[in-house]
């Protein structure tokens, strides 16, 4: 029964998320509305962590396997990928390096700024 009630709750979030996508004219996937909704319910205490944790961890542990068949799908109509080899290589290397550097530098500067202020207050 534990799993059944947890799965019901999680699929309910998925369904409400899909309804949001249907009614809101934005290209935002239903799963994202569902994610935010579940987060809000957990934060407000309307849903307890113990009411979703077991089934949630089960779903999350299976997640990587859901990406295998789309990747195998690369053997289908290879024409569609023509001209994307170099862009994909650039996006996975140069762009990843830039994102990592910018995120690290900006967040470290912001931490120092905050901690500097607190230090000032202490003094």
């Amino acid at each position: 029964m534990k799993y059944l009630s947890q799965i019901t709750l999680i699929t309910a979030m998925s369904l409400v998320g899909e309804l949001f996508t249907y009614f809101i004219p934005l290209p935002i996937p239903g799963s994202i509305y569902g994610l935010v909704l579940l987060l809000v319910l957990l934060m407000t205490g309307l849903v307890k962590l113990s009411q979703v944790k077991a089934a949630g961890d089960f779903f999350l542990s299976l997640m990587p396997i859901m990406f295998v068949s789309p990747l195998v799908g690369l053997i289908e109509n290879t024409d569609a990928y023509r001209g994307l080899v170099l862009p994909v290589l650039l996006a996975s290397t140069v762009s990843t390096f830039l994102v990592m550097a910018v995120t690290g530098v900006v967040s470290q500067a912001l931490i120092k700024k905050t901690e500097g202020k607190e230090g000032h207050r202490d003094a």
Binding site: G34, L49, V52, V68, L110
Partner: peptide, 29 residues
Amino acid sequence: FQILLTPTTVCLAIPLYEKLSYLKKYPLA
């Protein structure tokens, strides 16, 4: 397996919720 993708993405809220205390500590950064 892909049918499970939407409910699984919804479940990403769980690890996020568990780490939320960090967010309260360094919100700006």
